[in-house]
């Protein structure tokens, strides 16, 4: 068997240098995806006329098309229609693409989470004189957040891994770096296993964070 364990350990420090970029892409895209997803969910849940139909088309399109195709559409396709988009750098394009795609997934998760909050909660808010906005901010959204976290966590883990697609736009991130080192050393297995382990470790750390958050948010609901 031809496996160079020593070499694999040596590449970790180099790979880890690219970890911040992966994290930035994932976290920034997640923040935008949450913001857009929440707006979409509120629109579809409350059946806002016109916007609700548009939101459904948006959600349908971005859930049904491959992420890679979406990234290519944005980075290579848009500048053809709108020349000003050629100023868009690859990293920004990747973040935009990943934000949009994941916002469509989160919109569905959030809609279900909002739906799982008993309508009586909203009625109780209105009955003591709160406005609908106050009710959502103080009572409905906090309860929906707790319901949305497990599924949103899945989406985030998916997003972390999808950042590796940015390499196809030419972003020098974790996976791209691994690929370059592999072509230079021809030690493919060692490099790609090391890359896989970095993603795995990232997911483990995130899962611990999520577990802590879930516990904290569940406090009011424990007997």
């Amino acid at each position: 068997m031809n496996f160079d364990g020593q070499y694999m350990l040596e590449v970790f420090p180099t790979l880890l240098k690219y970890l911040p970029l992966t994290l930035v892409m994932a976290v920034v895209a997640m923040i935008f995806a949450i913001a857009i997803g929440l707006v979409l969910a509120l629109i579809t849940k409350n059946r806002v006329p016109v916007l609700h139909q548009l939101a459904n088309v948006y959600i349908s399109f971005f859930r049904a098309t491959p992420t890679l195709v979406q990234l290519f559409l944005i980075y290579y396709g848009l500048p053809q229609l709108f020349p000003s988009f050629s100023a868009l750098n690859a990293l920004t394009a990747a973040i935009i693409g990943l934000s949009i795609k994941n916002s469509a997934y989160l919109a569905e998760i959030f809609r279900a989470a909002l739906g799982s909050v008993d309508n009586g909660q909203l009625e109780a808010c209105l009955a003591v004189g709160m406005t609908k906005t106050q009710a959502y901010r103080r009572i409905i959204l906090p309860q929906a957040t707790r319901n949305a976290i497990p599924a949103s966590g899945n989406t985030f883990i998916g997003l972390v891994k999808e950042t590796s697609l940015a390499f196809t736009l030419g972003v020098a991130e974790l996976f791209a770096q691994g690929k370059m080192m592999a072509s230079a050393s021809l030690k493919f297995f060692e490099i790609y296993l090391a890359v896989a382990i970095v993603y795995w470790a990232l997911t483990i750390v995130y899962s611990l964070l999520q577990e802590w958050l879930e516990k904290r948010l569940s406090k009011p609901y424990k007997n």
């Binding site: 009586g120 109780a124 009955a127 309860q143 707790r146």
Partner: peptide, 19 residues
């Protein structure tokens, strides 16, 4: 109009995330 009254519901509807 809503601010003139308060309501007590059949199934309480207490805010579940509040003490």
């Amino acid at each position: 109009l809503r601010q003139q009254t308060a309501m007590v519901f059949q199934n309480y509807n207490l805010f579940k995330n509040r003490t």
